[in-house]
Design a protein around this nucleic acid. Sequence first.
DNA 1: AGAATAGTGTCTCTAAGACACTATAGT
DNA 2: ACTATAGTGTCTTAGAGACACTATTCT
Lengths: 248, 248
Amino acid sequence: MSRIPFSNVAERRELPPALAISTVIFSLRDDPRTGRKSLWMPLVRRTREPFRNQWALPGGPLGPRDSLIDAAAANLRDTTGLIPRYLEQLYAFGHPDRSPTRRVVSIVYWALVREDDAHDTDTEATSVLRDDPHVAWFRADDLAARQDLAFDHQEIIEYALWRLRNKVEYGSIAYRLLGERFTLAQVREVYEAVLDKELDPANFRRALRSATDIAETDEFLSGGKHRPPRLYRYTGSPTHRLESENIA
Amino acid sequence: MSRIPFSNVAERRELPPALAISTVIFSLRDDPRTGRKSLWMPLVRRTREPFRNQWALPGGPLGPRDSLIDAAAANLRDTTGLIPRYLEQLYAFGHPDRSPTRRVVSIVYWALVREDDAHDTDTEATSVLRDDPHVAWFRADDLAARQDLAFDHQEIIEYALWRLRNKVEYGSIAYRLLGERFTLAQVREVYEAVLDKELDPANFRRALRSATDIAETDEFLSGGKHRPPRLYRYTGSPTHRLESENIA
DNA sequence: AGAATAGTGTCTCTAAGACACTATAGT
DNA sequence: ACTATAGTGTCTTAGAGACACTATTCT
C-alpha cells in the first residue's frame, strides 16, 4: 500500500489521505549527566523509505475494529513491547507535505510508562554499537532540539513535552509513573524531572497533601540512611474528560 | 462513496476508515430567555442517511491539498457561510461504531465567530416553520443536553463547550468574539455568557488590566444613559501552541 | 436631581514560597 | 554523636473576591 512510490504530484493528488496512529512515550530514567532522574523516550529506527534509518516515533495503521486509543495501545505494544500506564490523545497532524510520498494524517497519542516496565532496552549510544536494534531510548530534552528525526516528529515531540509539563501541574498524571505505593519524595522527583527544576520539599508536601487524591498508608519505607518516609497511595480517578479509561 | 449502504460487517471491515473534518462553531447572541447574551451554535440538517433530517455539526471531506485547519475553515464557509475569528483543533473522534454505515474518523475543530458576522440565519423554531432550511442556530447549553443529534455529535458538543470554558479562563479567546475596539464591560459580557455566571465588574476590570494583552485607546463609547466607558483594543497574539495562525 | 454604569480604594482570606526548626532513622 | 532526609511551623507576599465609594454621562 504505502510501498508504491509516487513519482508526480498529480498521481498523489488522487489518493485519499492515509490515516496513521503514532505515540510519544515518556518514562523516567536515571540521567548519568545530572545524577537525577529525567524524561526519556523510545524511538524506532525506520527500515523503509522515506527517512530510512532515521529515528521516528513508533506508529502504525489503525486496526479496522479498534478505537483510536486501542490502536495506539496495540501499536505501542507491538513496536516497543511497552504497556502504558497512561494514554491520551495529543493531536492530529495533517499538513499536506509532512510525508514526502503519500499524504498521511497522523493521530498522535502520548503515553506514560513506568521505569520498571521499561528497563530492557538501550540508549542510542549502545544501540548504535549493537548492530542497529529496532528501539532506543533518548533524553526527551535532547530530542526536542534535534533536527534529524523522521517526518515532523521533532515538532510533535516538542508539543508532547509541552503538554506533559502543563498536565503535570494540574492533573494527577505524576502517579502514573510511580508504583502502587510511593513516598512524597518520589512524587517530587517526578515533578522535578518533568518540570526540570527543583521544588521545596516542605511546600511541595503541603501542596500534595491538600490535593485530595492521595491517601496515607500505615507503611513506611525503610532502608535509607535516614528517617523512613511514609508511603502513600493514589485514590483519584482518570484525569481526561474523554477516554475515561486512560489505562490503569 | 459514502452513498453505498453496507449490509454486513465483513464487507465493512475491508474498507479503510474514511476521514472527515467537522467543526463546532460558537457565537454570542442575545438570549430571549434570560435577556442576557449566551452561547449559540449553528447546526446543519442532514439530507442523507444515516441520520437523515437530524441536526449535525457542519462537516465534510478533507481536501487533498488543504491542511487540516484549512479544510475546517473551507468547510465552515461552504456549509454555513461563516468566517471564523478563531479556529483550533478539538479532538479526533474515531470510535468504530460512531457511524452506522462506513467507519469514519472525524477530526473536529472548534471555532468562534462574531455576532455581527452571523446574524442572517434562523433559530430552530423559525427554521422548522420555514420549510426546512439548511442551517439553524441553537443554544449551546440546550444542545449539550439533547439526545437527538446525528452520530456522536452531542458528545462532541459537550466536550467543545468544556474546552471553550477552560480556554476562556486562561487564553485570550474572549476578544475573538468582539470587534476591533471594545469596552471592558463587553469583555465581561463574553465571560459571563461563556461561563454562565455573573462576575464582579470591579474585580474583573482589575484582572483584565493586569493581564497585559489589552491596551486602552483614547476613545470612549457614548450613547448609553450613563458615563461613557473607555474603549480598549487587543494587542496580544495567537494563543495556541500549534497552528500559530488561528485566523485573524 | 436621579438613574445607571464607569471606575477607584480598601479590607479580608487564601495560597505560594522562603526558610527555620524538630523528628527519627542509619552509621 | 553525626548525617541525611522526613515532616511541622511560621512569616511574607501576591492575588481573588466582597463591597463601599466616587465620577460622569443622559434624561
